Simulated assay, not measured.
Amino acid sequence: MRRVLTLAGIAVLIGLLAMWWSGSFDRLAYWVAGQQRAFQNAIASALRAARAEQPGAVFALLSACFAYGLAHAAGPGHGKVLIGGYGMARGVPLLWLSLIALASSLGQAVTAVALVYTGVTLLNLGREAMVGVTEDIMAPVSYAAIALIGGWLVWRGLGHLRPVSAHDQEVAACASCGYAHGPTIAEVEKAGTLREALLLIAGIAVRPCTGALFVLIITWQMRIGALGVAGAFAMALGTAAVTIAVGLGAGTLRGGVLAGFAKSPRAAMLAAMVEILAGGIVVMLAVGLLFRAL
């Protein structure tokens, strides 16, 4: 069963790459944009009802914001590439990976709140100006940061390959000298540090959700700003649900790929190759998103 799941995961990965190169992601993005507009209309209606203090309006608004986050997360960005690549590349516990994904999404909401309230109170910026800052400056910065982190994963993998190769050449010597000539699979799969997690979160959180900007600005104008902040975080939770699912899927796929080689002397080499592959995919997709944003 595990082998079947692993093969299925590899097939999904190949399919995603094929969709990327064929332009299917662009068509998906257009469809997602249409869904987002529909959710924005629902959010606008819920905001008007909330301002009129209609019963159930707040719940309707938060539900619409959460649903918007789910739909918006299906489009490009929002850290899915980075979280999925990191989960595939590193032997990170799934709970820790889920917490990173959650913190990244919540970080986007924090960035949106900071940008909007700095813009409207200090700089007197309108919605178009703030969306422009997000799309023209913060989005490219986020994609560039993600590409750099992907390159770092590739570099780590290459660093693990060199001592692993030496280890394979000196297996006979190890039995007599008692020294380890390369990292073990457990060492290669060592959980990510707090610094790694903070870099991942920062790379994703620097780009706020445009839907959150929309809600925050409208509610500020309607003088119900607290409700807008709640809506922004409801969107972040919707985004987090998708991002966490991607990370868990990637981490599970990695575990399935490496499980059959757990006792192999080349297990550490395979883990390093998986890290290189995942980092390369992160770089490729992040650079593609960066070129689209420029």
Score class of each variant (00 low, 15 high):
I146C: 02
I146R: 10
I146N: 09
A147Q: 00
L148N: 02
I149A: 03
I149T: 02
I149E: 02
G150L: 11
G150I: 10
G151I: 01
G151Q: 00
W152F: 12
L153T: 07
L153Q: 11
L153P: 06
L153N: 07
V154P: 06
V154C: 12
R156T: 02
R156Q: 12
R156W: 07
G157S: 06
G157D: 03
G159P: 03
G159K: 08
H160A: 11
H160R: 09
H160G: 08
H160Y: 15
L161T: 02
R162P: 02
R162N: 03
R162K: 14
P163E: 07
P163G: 01
V164H: 05
S165M: 14
A166C: 01
H167P: 00
H167K: 14
H167N: 05
H167V: 00
D168P: 00
D168T: 02
Q169K: 08
A173E: 13
A173W: 06
A173F: 12
C174Q: 13
C174R: 15
S176W: 13
C177G: 08
C177H: 03
G178S: 09
Y179G: 05
A180I: 00
H181M: 10
G182D: 07
G182C: 04
G182Y: 03
P183Q: 11
P183F: 13
P183V: 04
I185H: 03
I185K: 06
E187W: 01
E187F: 10
E187D: 06
V188S: 04
V188M: 01
V188K: 05
V188G: 01
V188F: 08
E189P: 01
K190V: 09
G192P: 11
L194V: 15
R195H: 12
R195Q: 14
E196N: 15
E196W: 10
L198P: 05
I201V: 15
A202S: 13
A202V: 12
G203P: 15
I204C: 03
I204V: 15
I204E: 08
I204W: 06
V206N: 02
P208F: 06
C209K: 01
C209P: 01
C209Q: 05
T210W: 01
A212F: 02
L213F: 06
